[in-house]
Design a protein around this nucleic acid. Structure first.
Length: 550
RNA sequence: GUCCCUGUAGCUCAGUUGGACAGAGCGGCUGCCUUCUAAGCAGCAUGUCGCGCGUUCGAGUCGCGCCAGGGACGCCA
């Protein structure tokens, strides 16, 4: 695709130099896949764009450009189509050579060097350790972990990070709630704090700790007991979160503690920097960040009148650490819809710290509404009335969860219908895709049993329409990787996976692989092996398994 | 009141950054298993792309204004 762009560019420049049409600023050259296969593999609307600037009829421009374009090994036919498109068709022998290429690259096929090793930090999930993960968190977790895999494939160096909010008022409320539940275990009638956590998981947690450690915390001074018990509780919750993430195949390189920002001085340094630059003011007994100086609606509190720093202040220190200490080229944060208001604030801070805000990307994941058929299940952590990610995975396997979460763009709210997810366990796009892989594995198994060596298979025998259609789809994966890495939208992957499975199933029906024709068998086995590589790579990028049999 | 996201087939959603006749899965209806997995294949039906203006050779896509749903506007995180 890049080659086509280059070659078109060359043709335009030459046309301008030879005076066929006047020099104009070059419009962005777009090469895309036409919807209609009759229009070739690639198409460009460049003549239409140039027509406006030059006043020459698009078809004339198209014809001239085609004449001026250097011929390319990949391209068979270049045609001009009204109202002014240039269509390109790939050569069959170039396509079949790709089969060899894919086999020789193996699992590294579709790895590209878009990122050029740029250091990228990807922060996601980062749920407060005050309760178990619920379904909405699963969405961010799956999107984030998939993005990490794709960015790595696209040549970025990626650090996956979970920011643990292990200090602040919510944590305090958690500790006090746990202490109250613990006292209740001993039969003391105490109320939970009004801003406390009412979920049943805290009752269970208190009982668990009581079972293991007895009543020893009750004998401590209250404040000490709250802190000690609280630390144990936080660790337990965190362990649970890590377990759940692991089940979903979500892994992290760094678990970053909010507390550490205060112990290691980032907080002080970040505040000093902002103060030096004049972005900090004191009013009403509190310390404020002057967001309004950067075009925001209102200023934001950094240090409360009681002297405690806000979450916002912590996050500033954290981003100071990300950009100025650890020197990441690019920082991506995946946040829930409830953090939407936080985005422009953080942008303002980043530029206040003297960093190009373009280096900070924030992906906002819209809410997940959980349903069982008609019944809508409200997700509220405080009341404890929630469906945990764990419960979801007890009912629906991780591959289905991942595929389902990935299939919708982060921008749109999604319904997760538990009933449907379970009912569709058979008629399910996940199985449709995995089944294609299992079929391939089955063919290759049979080839092994019959000891068919296809290393010397001649791919030029692959000339039929189903074979070429399959290859055409296979060679798109590198472009998909590029698109996902550029747009940070992993939802293109499941759609590609389905398309690929479709063309494979269709090929499978029409083309018998292992047959009497020895030469064709060897060629098709190569094709099937390459298809397996591409399909399995696609599944792995999504964090899904590629089953050998089903 | 201000800001953000969404509105496309009966349902759930894509639509490659403005292109060629608007797509997929599920659901519905027809056919297809003596040969590598029928969790499959081939085909049929279904649309005022929320509404209205505008920009453009060309709009589901861009701009403005409405309507509807969700979210955010804390010295919570």
């Amino acid at each position: 695709m890049q080659k086509l762009v280059q070659s078109l560019k060359q043709a335009v420049v030459q046309a301008q130099q030879t005076g066929i049409f006047v020099s104009t600023t070059l419009p962005e050259i777009v090469v895309e896949h036409p919807q209609n296969p009759e229009h070739g593999d690639y198409a460009s609307n460049l003549p239409l764009k140039l027509s406006r600037a030059t006043g020459i009829a698009p078809l004339v421009i198209a014809q001239r450009l085609v004449e001026l374009m250097p011929s390319m090994a990949e391209v068979d036919e270049v045609t001009v189509a009204p109202p002014g498109f240039i269509n390109f068709t790939l050569r069959n022998d170039w396509l079949t050579e790709q089969v060899e290429l894919i086999i020789s690259k193996g699992a590294s096929y579709s790895d590209i060097n878009l990122g050029k090793g740029k250091r990228t930090q990807l922060e996601f999930v980062s749920v407060n350790p005050t309760g178990p993960l619920h379904i909405g968190h699963g969405r961010g977790a799956v999107i984030g972990s998939t993005l990490a895999k794709v960015l790595v494939a696209a040549g970025y160096s990626v650090a996956r990070e979970y920011y643990i909010n292990d200090t602040g008022s919510q944590i305090n409320a958690f500790k006090r709630s746990l202490y109250a539940r613990y006292q209740q275990c001993l039969g003391t009638a105490v109320e939970l704090p009004t801003n406390g956590y009412f979920g049943n998981y805290l009752v269970d947690l208190a009982k668990e700790i009581f079972r293991e450690q007895g009543d020893r915390f009750i004998k401590l001074p209250e404040e000490e007991a709250i802190q000690k018990l609280g630390e144990i509780g936080l660790n337990r919750i965190m362990e649970g979160i890590k377990r759940d993430l692991k089940l979903l195949d979500v892994n992290f390189d760094v678990w970053f503690s909010e507390q550490s920002l205060y112990r290691h001085g980032q907080y002080e340094k970040a505040m000093a920097l902002l103060r030096d630059k004049g972005y900090i003011t004191k009013k009403e007994n509190a310390v404020w960040f002057v967001s309004t100086a950067l075009g925001e609606d209102k200023d934001n509190v950094l240090v409360r009148s009681d002297g405690s720093p806000t979450y916002f202040a912590s996050d500033i220190a954290y981003h100071y650490n990300k950009f100025l200490e650890r020197q990441f080229d690019k920082v991506i944060n995946i946040w829930g819809a409830d953090h939407q208001g936080h985005v422009s604030r953080m942008r303002a801070v980043v530029s206040a710290l003297g960093i190009d805000p373009e280096r900070l990307k924030v992906i906002i994941c819209q809410l997940v509404t959980l349903r069982r058929g008609e019944e809508i299940i409200r997700v509220s952590k405080r009341s404890g009335d929630l469906i945990t990610l764990r419960e979801l995975m007890d009912e629906v396997n991780p591959d289905i969860c991942r595929f389902f979460f990935l299939s919708r763009s982060a921008d749109s709210q999604m319904d997760f219908d538990l009933e449907l997810a379970k009912k569709q366990s058979v008629d399910n796009p996940v199985y449709y895709v995995q089944y294609a892989h299992a079929r391939i594995a089955s063919i290759l198994r049979l080839a092994r049993e019959r000891e068919i060596n296809y290393e010397q298979g001649d791919v030029s025998l692959l000339t039929s329409e189903p074979e070429l259609t399959l290859i055409r789809k296979m060679v798109l994966l590198p472009e998909i990787v590029e698109t996902v890495a550029n747009t940070l939208e992993p939802h293109h992957l499941p759609y590609y996976a389905q398309d690929l499975a479709t063309v494979f199933h269709s090929f499978y029906k029409q083309c018998r692989v292992i047959s009497e024709d020895k030469a064709l068998t060897r060629a098709r086995l190569k094709l099937v092996r390459a298809a397996q590589i591409v399909l399995s790579k696609t599944l792995h990028l999504m964090g899904m398994t590629a089953p050998e049999q089903m």
